[in-house]
Design a protein around this nucleic acid. Structure first.
Lengths: 352, 352
DNA sequence: ATTATTTGCACCATCGATTGTGCAACTTAG
DNA sequence: CTAAGTTGCACAATCGATGGTGCAAATAAT
């Protein structure tokens, strides 16, 4: 409107325009003006000018003074799986609802990266940090602790502050049972026909594997440790594992427990190289939910982790002075084959 | 190390410790010290102390002074599709490689939200803004322009600054042709057997629809406008459209052009309510790529948009003084059924 | 009409880093 | 031995908002 709309208005500009002091303007615009006994009419005037000149507070200045920023951080291993992207989406909604700003970064599962990122986020004076799926949560904790930054672990637990994670053990049991029950009584699954692929030596994998083993033993008997093939969280390592198995046994197992959707992508790569008949007799259980995966040409059982619940719980816990670094377990949900669940996108109005 | 490791070290702390002035410390640590003729030995000393005390610059103070922040913003409609999550992942990698920090927000396709978000990002003094898939890019532009913030459009073009978008018209043509060629010469697809579902009245949809119509007319002849069913970018609206079609015609079309993976999720929901036989004769082309979708029990052709290329191009263009608000087109890639392409995750080291 | 309160606001230091400017101490030239 | 650089750094203003403190003017109490 004014000639100099190139630069943003500050409280000093409004101070001149209104004839009040900068501190009065500040108080009016940040809501502390009643406490400072500013006249209603003065406040009104200033609010009007602020509106007219499109004033918005400089968050850097505000943050510098108050040593807060309004930013809440989420550290993710990666974005590009439905699990983590829905984590980001859900996190964003919660943060914005609190009038704060999400800043999401991905650490690529590298402990050193994780720590450096935390350092850097600290230098922006972020108010809280949600550490999701970190390889070394306690390393990140040390950084946060030193800076007095509130934080919490999600997905993978740490030992220093509270953690919110899926009940991977129970989930593993339930998924394993569901896989086994897919087979009819007249041609039941045999112990050596059920394998677990994927995951690495992290808490989630360990618990899932434990659940898998326990349930497998209970239902099928026989202890068959060779049925575990950890491949890391990498599509290609998983693909190679499937290829190797296939070469050695001239076929896939009848039933697969796949440890994550990332590993499932490894199975896709394997599938691309083999005719569809190879998979006619296959049952897959995957510890993650992806709507498209649920409709593949063979029965796919999935475990959907309760992302909404985890984020909600994490927001509750992060406020509390950490009495004890407890691990809070949330049950994941078994999803039958050919199921399309609503997701975070469904809340969005989009008339088209 | 020191007693008071609870608060972060500042240049003033290091100033005292080193016996130099704060400005000298600042210069040493931000790299401008040669220009200021600081002695090598002084620099060395200060660098040592900085290391020892784990100094990291307060970005808010730095930003306040220099009116920059080191933050680069990406505004996304949503996170939770493979297209947009890979956009976020790719963006992140590029930004971090430049030594800056990504701040990603989702605007949920609401023009008012988009503008407010831009306002708010401005108040953090972000250095650049990538506007991806905005419903009203020019509205966001106005906000950026007023604040002197460099910005660029991705995915959906605006008229005020440069835009980088997929060649939706050519992509639409190619996908349509590929769908039609899936059918053999002895039982070829007829014009009234090919429908387009999804999308709304945005640039991308319009172009894809134009490509669809043109190619359909060229190959199949007949102009059949009823074959377009826009449903918005919503899974449920798409599901309802499929249901309606099915009720009216007692079957699905033999071939579908689905406008986005979000709409494809609507098809999944429809599938969940119908037996597999319903889809035995179906061919689907989808304008988006999702690895799991590629392996569904019927032929699925997909268009993968060149996310890496778009981000790269956008970084090139955003620096340039906007001579002309040109639209830069990037060809998307046709993906055959049962194809598992590598993605941004493949770059990650993860031995497992 | 005084004194005691309350109201309404201005002043100023502060957060931590950046940067233009000034000026000793030292070196080189003449 | 003096004048003219050069080197190496300190000083102080500044970015924009916040919040403690102090003080007039208006109002109430006596």
């Amino acid at each position: 409107m004014k000639k100099d709309s190139k630069k943003k208005a500050t409280i000093y500009d409004l101070s001149v325009l209104s004839g009040s002091s900068a501190s009065t303007v500040s108080a009016v615009l940040n809501g502390t003006w009643r406490k400072r006994r500013i006249k209603e009419s003065t406040a009104e005037l200033i609010r009007g000018l602020a509106e007219e000149h499109q004033y918005t507070a400089n968050q850097q200045a505000r943050g510098l003074r108050s040593s807060r920023s309004g930013l809440i951080g989420l550290m993710l291993p990666v974005y590009d799986t439905r699990y983590f992207s829905s984590m980001a989406q859900t996190f964003e909604a919660h943060v914005r609802q609190r009038g704060q700003w999400p800043i999401v970064v991905s650490s690529l599962r590298d402990p050193e990266e994780e720590r450096q990122m935390a350092e850097s986020l600290v230098s922006y004076n972020i108010d809280q940090l949600f550490i999701c799926g970190a390889t070394d949560p306690d390393g990140v904790h040390a950084v946060c602790e030193a800076a007095g930054l509130k934080h919490i672990n999600i997905d993978l637990p740490g030992t220093k502050v509270a953690s919110v994670v899926s009940d991977n053990y129970q989930g593993g049991r339930i998924l394993t049972e569901a896989i086994i029950r897919q087979f009819s009584a007249d041609d039941p699954l045999k112990p050596q026909e059920l394998f677990l692929f994927g995951g690495k030596d992290d808490h989630a994998s360990r618990e899932r594997i434990r659940g898998f083993k326990d349930m497998k033993r209970e239902l099928l008997g026989g202890d068959f440790d060779a049925s575990i093939q950890p491949t890391g969280y990498s599509p290609n390592m998983a693909r190679i594992a499937f290829e190797n198995f296939f070469e050695k046994n001239t076929r896939l197992p009848r039933a697969l427990f796949v440890n994550s959707s990332i590993n499932f992508e490894g199975l896709l790569r394997f599938m691309a190289a083999h005719p569809t008949e190879t998979f006619s007799d296959l049952v897959v259980g995957c510890f993650d939910y992806d709507p498209f995966a649920s409709f593949l040409p063979f029965p796919v059982l999935m475990m959907r982790q309760d992302v909404e619940g985890m984020i909600t719980k994490a927001f509750e816990l992060i406020e509390q002075p950490h009495a004890m670094p407890q691990i809070h377990l949330l049950p994941p949900q078994l999803v039958s084959p050919r199921t399309a669940l609503p997701g975070p996108l469904d809340g969005i109005k989009d008339a088209g």
